[in-house]
């Protein structure tokens, strides 16, 4: 089954998730950041009637947050 195509792990038990796992983590942080802060921005938009500006700011902020998370979680050389 799919079990035998695991990349060889070199570290101990506290190993990072490898390969595809890291990719999914990175992508889900980016999309998650965008969605969460985009949604908060959208709420502000509905509240103050700004016509999409707050949503845009929220998306950019969330994207920045997502990038920071990816860099912190995956991009720090161990």
């Amino acid at each position: 089954m799919a079990g035998d195509q695991k990349p060889p792990s070199t570290g101990g038990p506290g190993d990072d998730p490898s390969g595809a796992g890291q990719g999914w983590t990175a992508l889900s942080y980016l999309i998650g950041g965008m969605l969460v802060w985009g949604f908060i921005g959208w709420l502000v938009d509905q509240w103050l009637d700004l016509g999409g500006i707050a949503t845009g700011i929220g998306v950019v902020l969330g994207m920045a947050g997502g990038i920071i998370l990816v860099v912190r979680r995956l991009g720090t050389p161990t």
Partner: peptide
């Protein structure tokens, strides 16, 4: 709470919550 300076934590905690507990 990810390892990050305190002033960006408010930005990061909702994302972490979303991706860990909702997604």
């Amino acid at each position: 709470i990810p390892p990050a300076p305190w002033y960006i934590l408010p930005l990061l905690i909702p994302i972490e919550f979303f991706s860990t507990f909702l997604v």
